[in-house]
Design a protein around this nucleic acid. Structure first.
Lengths: 126, 126
DNA sequence: CTGACATATTCCATGAATGGAATATATTGC
DNA sequence: GCAATATATTCCATTCATGGAATATGTCAG
């Protein structure tokens, strides 16, 4: 009788979107939105949450690069980093034409035609 | 001995950000990014995933309004809706000044000063 | 060195999301 | 009505995230 051990490579280390899924983490980001560095204690006071909770969420945000941290004495100063949020912004912006914007209908229709042009090579669109 | 039944209002019905947390759902959104209506079968073929998986993810996207659905014969045609994605876009755009953009440093610094001006009323900033 | 403070980490129980298989519903063509 | 097609729903096991309590780590003041 044999046993075969398989190393399962689960745990695809969270990405930016997943980090934003939790409302509390977005609150944290908002709190850092003034562009200043903030100590954990300040954020705890601002959000009125238990310190371990805040620390853990900051940890998640740091993992994906949304915040950076520097030590200063016995404090840790967290600061918002733009790049990862930019990714989210840019991705969403891709669909800009789906909310009217100021784009007049004519141009919008033209864009749709162009898009279905591309998609029609495999009979996939309606 | 008494028992008190408490109705616990859990299940805060997923929001847009949570819906985007799953990469496969973003793939689905990308596939609908041509602005056309697509039947489930088309999406199944495009993403090469089991049909129930696709149906379930479309269900999540529909719950939060990212897609809408219309029936046409035995097909269900899904279409991307802009508004919810706009929310995401707008939220992210709030932090625009955190990625250099073209904004020169002087103006950026000025914005930071203005922001900390606001925050300094409770000794919260560093 | 000691005590107080600031923050991070671990542990554990619980709840929620995921994946897959099976099955249900609805619609069309015959 | 019946078979086939298109899609949704249910069920279940498993994984993953969360929340809270407790505890560990690191740093400063005296």
């Amino acid at each position: 009788m044999e046993y075969i051990a398989v190393m399962v490579a689960t745990q695809e280390s969270r990405d930016v979107f997943a980090a934003l899924a939790e409302p509390r983490r977005r609150d944290l980001i908002d709190a850092l939105g003034d562009g200043e560095s903030h100590a954990v204690g300040e954020l705890v006071a601002a959000l009125r949450l238990p310190q371990p909770t805040v620390s853990k969420d900051l940890g998640v945000l740091r993992e994906v690069g949304i915040v950076s941290v520097t030590r200063r004495g016995r404090h840790r100063l967290y600061r918002l980093e733009g790049e990862p949020l930019r990714q989210v912004h840019d991705w969403a912006k891709t669909f800009e034409r789906f909310w009217g914007h100021q784009l007049d209908r004519v141009k919008q229709q033209a864009e749709r035609m162009a898009a279905s042009e591309t998609a029609s090579k495999e009979g996939r669109s309606c």
